[in-house]
Every structure is written in C-alpha cells, then in structure tokens.
Simulated scan of single mutants.
Amino acid sequence: MKPDLDLSVERVIRAPRVTVWRAWTDQSRLAKWWVPAPAHCRVDRLDVRPGGGFVTRLSDDGGEFVPHMDATFLVVDEYERIVFTNAVDSAWRPASPVPVAMTAEVTFNDHPDGTDYRVVVRHGDPAARARHQELGFADGWGSVTAQLAGFAESEETR
C-alpha cells in the first residue's frame, strides 16, 4: 500500500471465509449489503472471473435505479482475493468513472475469530485519492464493510 495513493478498510468479520466470499460472489447476497443503507442495490451483472463484468445500480428510495458501478474483475483467487477496476468498464472499454477511477483489491484471510477482511483502493494520483477521501471513502466503504459483516455474521447463525 502506498499512503499517498491508496485508501484502505480492514475488519475482522465473525464468519468463516467461505461465507464472506459467498456474500461477495453471489448476486442476491451482494445486493443486500453493497451500497450504504438506506439505499437499495440492484446487481445487473456479477461475473466473478478475470475479465468478468461487475455492474450495479442504486436507488435512494427503492424507486428509480441509477448507475452505480460498471467495472471489470482483474483477478479472482477463489476464497482469497478479488481485484476489480472501474477504469475499464464491463464491456472492456476505457472508462472515466465518477467520482474517481480506482482499482480495489479485496482479500479474505482466516482469522481465529472468522475472516480478516481487507480492502485496498488504489488511485492513479494523489489528487484522485484526496478526492475519494473528501467524498467520504471512510464512511462509504466503512459502512458497506459493516453491512457485509452484519450480513455474513447473520448467515452463520441461520
């Protein structure tokens, strides 16, 4: 991680790694936690493989859904790591995403209490990193990580 270019979120999720992985790789599960509440998420495409598309929409009130993420998976190491970027869209075309272009690396590691979950979001320059931080990176990615934890932990109690 490069502090002048990258932002990160870490959390121990009290659920097995396979459960956290499924929450990321199953379309219906991802829709339950991927955008900050109270917004709603619709997953249009989740092709979790290198080169696969990652397309989501969001709605503030459950009515009209607007574009949220149009990205491509770069690396998928089952149960260990997912890397995606929004700098290339799901059709493999160069993109100029709003608010910033980024590449996110999500890692899943065993932890005595469940899963050591880490996200590093990489930016092309310090200005993009600063913009993402100013727009609420910590609150946005922090809240969806908390939602993921709540979802995965509740899946384990069923």
Score class of each variant (00 low, 15 high):
V88F: 04
D113M: 00
D70C: 15
P16R: 08
D4R: 02
T25V: 15
A149E: 01
D110M: 03
V120D: 09
A39W: 10
V120A: 05
E64N: 03
A127E: 14
T145V: 00
A128C: 06
L7M: 03
G150Q: 04
D116G: 03
M1A: 05
A149T: 02
G53D: 11
T115Y: 00
V35G: 04
T145F: 01
V144W: 06
Q147R: 00
A101F: 02
A130N: 04
T72S: 14
V119E: 06
V18S: 14
P126C: 04
R14Q: 04
F73I: 06
A130M: 05
S8T: 03
S8L: 02
H123P: 09
M69F: 15
E10I: 00
E64T: 09
V18I: 13
D77V: 13
G53R: 04
H68L: 12
V43S: 13
V100Q: 13
V18Y: 11
E134K: 05
L58Y: 09
F84A: 13
L30S: 13
V100W: 06
G124E: 14
R49F: 08
E64A: 10
H132I: 02
T157I: 01
A152D: 02
P3L: 06
N86K: 00
F84D: 14
G51Y: 09
R29N: 12
Q147C: 02
R93K: 12
P36F: 06
A104G: 11
Q27R: 15
Q147F: 00
R93H: 10
D4A: 12
W21S: 10
L74H: 10
P112G: 02
P67A: 15
S90W: 12
E153D: 01
R57K: 13
V35A: 10
A87Y: 07
A87C: 14
R11T: 03
S143T: 10
V88P: 06
S90A: 15
D113E: 04
D89I: 11
R131C: 08
R158N: 06
M1R: 03
F73C: 08
L58G: 05
M1L: 04
E64M: 05
N109L: 07
R129Q: 12
A146N: 04
V12S: 02
S154M: 01
L135S: 04
F84N: 05
R57N: 13
R49V: 11
W24I: 09
L148G: 04
E153G: 01
Q27L: 15
T19G: 07
Y79A: 13
H123K: 10
F108T: 10
H68C: 13
Y117T: 02
D139S: 08
L7E: 05
L58C: 08
L30K: 12
V144F: 07
V119N: 04
D125R: 12
R29P: 02
A23V: 09
G142F: 09
